[in-house]
Amino acid sequence: MAKRFKNKTALITGSSQGIGSACALRLAEEGADIILNGHKFDERGEKLIKQIKNLGRKAEFIEADMSKVKSVLKLMKSAVKIYGTLDILVNNAGLETKADFLDVTEEDYDLVMNTNLKGVFFATQAFAKYCKDNKRNGVVVNMSSVHEEIAFPHFAAYCVSKGGLKMLTRNLASELAPIGVRINNVAPGAISTPINKELLANKKQLKMVLQNIPLKRMGKVEEVAAVVAFLASDDAAYVTGSTYFVDGGLSYDYQEQ
């Protein structure tokens, strides 16, 4: 595999499992040294560090709560110190809570919005400041969702956070271009990850979901990671402010209905 990220370092938030860990492995395979992140360093992080080191790359793990700005800023400062540079930020950390709109609590709303949008906002701000102060180019890839476009009943706060992320990315593409920072979104659809374990275990519900996907299957985390790698690389040097859907045609088919 081509080493598109030779001499590059990347921070992937929320990278203990699922799409985040797949992104970490893909970037490491292509030559990047990796900074992993999660709420807590556990056996998942240990396994991932071992996998990355087996690829001949360096890996470290930093605990941080992406819903708290103080924790986010500490993470960004620590990330730069580890290898002395930081070239790529993948804002992958995110969560969702299911509830009827009439039952959503302020606590649930704040948790989703703070993690999925506020944390991304201030992590990106800190990264952009670092790039500007050190006269370095940088790349940001945000993990959005098809639900930046498609309604998702009972997940209102989640949809609002991803819709906000779409606009944030478009706005920052313009504002950060003069300092050499590109920013894009990747919007997965139905992907086989731990967050979808209930769906994968419910054959009836899974069948209904697959009926709405033109490719008639769930996506793989590696397929999302491949698009992240493209956007983070110089192959996408003229791409900024865009959302790339990785959804088997779900969003296009939905818009055509």
Rank of each mutant, 00 (worst) to 15 (best):
L95Q: 11
T105N: 01
N92D: 12
E107F: 04
K77I: 08
M113T: 02
K98N: 00
T85G: 11
L86V: 06
N91I: 03
Y83D: 02
V80H: 14
G84N: 09
A99T: 02
M113A: 06
G94C: 02
G94P: 01
K81E: 15
K77R: 13
E106S: 09
T105F: 00
S78H: 12
M113F: 07
M113I: 13
V90L: 06
A79G: 04
K98W: 00
V90A: 05
K81D: 14
E106H: 06
T97I: 12
T105C: 01
Y109C: 12
G84C: 09
D108T: 00
V90C: 05
S78K: 15
V104K: 04
D110G: 07
N92L: 09
V80T: 15
I82M: 06
E96H: 13
L102K: 12
L89N: 06
V80Q: 15
K81Q: 15
A79C: 07
Y83I: 02
A93V: 05
F101C: 05
S78C: 11
N91A: 06
F101R: 01
A79F: 05
E96M: 12
L86I: 12
A99I: 01
L102A: 12
D103R: 07
S78Q: 15
E106M: 07
N92W: 08
A99M: 05
S78D: 15
V112A: 00
V90H: 06
D100F: 08
L102W: 09
V112R: 00
T97W: 00
I88V: 12
K77P: 06
G84H: 08
L95E: 11
D100G: 10
L111M: 13
M113H: 08
D110F: 06
E96L: 10
N91D: 06
I88W: 04
S78V: 10
E106G: 06
M113D: 04
N92I: 08
D110A: 11
Y83G: 02
A99G: 05
F101S: 07
L95C: 10
D87S: 14
L89F: 10
I88S: 03
D108Q: 09
F101N: 05
I82F: 05
V104G: 04
Y109A: 15
N91H: 03
L102R: 11
V112F: 00
L89E: 08
V104M: 12
L111V: 07
A79Y: 04
S78W: 07
I88M: 05
E107H: 08
V112S: 00
T85Q: 14
V90R: 02
N92M: 09
D110V: 03
V90E: 03
L86H: 05
A99N: 08
F101P: 01
D87K: 13
S78F: 06
E106P: 04
N92C: 09
K81P: 09
V112C: 00
T105H: 01
E106W: 05
D108H: 00
N91E: 04
L111R: 13
V80D: 13
L86D: 03
V80C: 14
Y109R: 13
V80E: 15
N92Y: 10
I82T: 08
L102Q: 10
